[in-house]
Design a protein around this nucleic acid. Structure first.
Lengths: 229, 229
DNA sequence: AAGTGGTCTAGACCACGCG
DNA sequence: GCGTGGTCTAGACCACTTA
């Protein structure tokens, strides 16, 4: 009898795999299981919570623990820091500021940031390189009212991506992934044909309800984001 | 004094946000914090583990808990069940089997599945619709030696995606996301222009080391996968 | 060698939500 | 109401890793 929470998770997982407990079924209560496994209830709790996090179980007070009817897999991705990702592949990371200006946010941007009034934002475009190859095109809007020390940063040297991730915290964020066809500008900057399929990552963050920044990262063909299940 | 682990997580999170503890810093030990917060060490442990899971802290025995030097955000995505996703938008889900055959796996597929010998696999192509609009193109290879009851399934009625997710468990899996330019076949099947950018999702699973299935899902332009941070 | 996080225990109280 | 999971406690032992 393995009384570790990992051992119990493994055994419960096996019963789910083997169909001893089927989707929709109510499984025994924590008390019953802690009795069966001859361990403390807290240990069973740890194991079942872990499985519930993965989406395999659904737990409700009083109602008990059920095997998820439709096991919607959940996958955890690490969102890359561009510099770290490039250097991890053994390439040299390089960064080039393309554009920096203060502008009123266009409508789609203020919508994305949930801005009420069309505030004056800092707009930055930059290219990230892996060796001499363009690796990622960054298009970012920053709310200067929320980000301290913004005017002190030399964005021709420090990537906005890195500065913000390292220094500016947030309390909420949204992330979405998609694909987008390259336009003429993308093609030229990323040095690829104009019809290429780009991988697109959008991220927006807020600090206590105030918009901080929103960014679109575009990656040339071949880029993938991977994880294990 | 809030002695809940959520309250403690919030307070520690605040100290990270406010820079009281900076990237790379060693923060007080669990014992010290449980003393400060006047609670049990287990409660502090729960809070710190939660922050470590999110990538904000790095914990090592004896070395203590450090603020992550480069806070690599981790994001959890729910991997959609196609039917559920379509129906959640209020559309009618429809499924069309395009092709079903037994073939030796081509090299790229056996590599993806980590097959040693070129086994005979079941190859399936199918289209998933949202209303009358093509929603997703599925290209799947199944290992019949591992999947029970495969010959009993009528894949003209039941989507392989759904059958496998509901009935066939796995112990390991890989998932990768990317973008791909549509070719002539994709364009015709998905009813889109030939240069469109497709969102590509690859998933492969194994059961106790044996390859179960590998699938490529292609989504037409406009599809996004989203989550909150 | 010693300090730190990882985990387990036995017990307790509570909040939720089904009947 | 009352059974269930959610959480907290005080204490203990252990595993890992650094000094």
């Amino acid at each position: 009898m393995s009384q570790t929470w990992l051992g119990i998770r493994e055994e419960v997982h096996r019963r789910l795999r083997d169909g001893e407990w089927k989707p929709g079924d109510l499984i025994p209560s924590e008390a019953a299981l802690s009795d069966e496994f001859n361990c403390a209830r807290a240990t069973v709790n740890r194991a079942l919570q872990s499985l519930a996090e993965q989406g395999l179980l659904e737990r409700k007070r009083k109602a008990g623990t059920r095997v998820a009817a439709t096991p919607v897999p959940k996958a955890m991705f690490q969102i890359p820091l561009l510099r770290a990702e490039v250097e991890a592949r053994g390439s040299t990371y390089r960064y080039l500021l393309l554009k920096k200006s203060r502008r009123k946010a266009p409508r789609n941007i203020s919508a994305r940031m949930k801005l009420e009034s069309a505030a004056n934002l800092l707009h930055i475009k930059a290219l990230h390189f892996s060796g001499d190859t363009p690796y990622c095109l960054e298009d970012r809007w920053i709310n200067p009212d929320v980000v301290d020390g913004l005017s002190d940063v030399d964005f021709s040297q420090t990537s906005a991506n890195e500065f913000l991730l390292r220094n500016i915290p947030y309390t909420q964020g949204e992330l979405s992934l998609g694909a987008r066809e390259a336009n003429a500008e993308h093609a030229e900057l990323l040095d690829i044909p104009e019809t290429s399929a780009l991988f697109e990552m959008n991220r927006s963050t807020w600090l206590d309800g105030l918009p901080v920044t929103t960014v679109t990262l575009l990656f040339p063909p071949g880029y993938t984001l991977s994880t294990t299940l």
